[in-house]
């Protein structure tokens, strides 16, 4: 490749091997490297490092804040669930109490009604018994009178005592 130089006679072979330019290149290289090093170590790298650290810090903080909020949300949910459970228990207690009260009132009313019914029944029975008794008496009286009248109508001698005794005996049978 180096032999391909035909027009440029002033550059024999590779310019890379022209030692007369080495001093110049090395001098400017060292200047350049020092300048780049100064720029990087004094300005660029601390700045970029700080930006990256700040970003890392921001991200870490944000994640921590998010974690915190999440914990709070979980807490709030637990509190809500607890309140709900408490309310349910309270409601159940009130329902049970009310039921018991109503049941007691009902039982009392039923007992009272039963007692009244029993009293009324007894009264009725007594009245019926009286009525029946009086009816029997009436029937007896009517039967005696009727028997007497029949005996008289038949032309017999109506002995009041014997007729009464006969009617009474019949009524028992």
């Amino acid at each position: 490749m180096a032999t391909a130089t035909q027009g440029a006679a002033s550059a024999p072979g590779m310019p890379q091997l022209d030692f007369s330019t080495f001093g110049n290149q090395i001098f400017w290289l060292l200047v350049t490297l020092v300048v780049i090093y100064m720029i990087l170590s004094r300005v660029a790298l601390p700045r970029i490092g700080a930006v990256l650290a700040e970003r890392q810090g921001t991200i870490t903080n944000d994640i921590a804040a998010a974690e915190n909020l999440r914990a709070k949300a979980v807490e709030a949910e637990a509190a809500y669930n607890k309140a709900l459970a408490d309310a349910r228990v309270e409601a159940n207690r009130i329902i049970a109490e009310t039921k018991a009260e109503i049941q007691a009132d009902l039982d009392k009313a039923i007992a009272k009604a039963d007692a009244q019914i029993a009293a009324k029944t007894a009264e009725g029975e007594k009245a019926i018994a009286e009525i029946r008794e009086s009816a029997l008496e009436n029937v007896t009286a009517v039967a005696k009178d009727t028997a007497k009248e029949i005996v008289i109508a038949m032309g017999g001698n109506a002995d009041a005592r014997s007729v009464n005794a006969a009617v009474t005996a019949r009524m028992k049978g």
Binding site: A4, A8, A11, M14, P15
Partner: peptide, 17 residues
């Protein structure tokens, strides 16, 4: 190529200081 067409080129000239 350079002799055949009379073109004069030097691929290494770009590296001259």
């Amino acid at each position: 190529a350079s002799t055949g067409t009379g073109l004069v080129f030097d691929p290494m000239a770009q590296f001259m200081v």
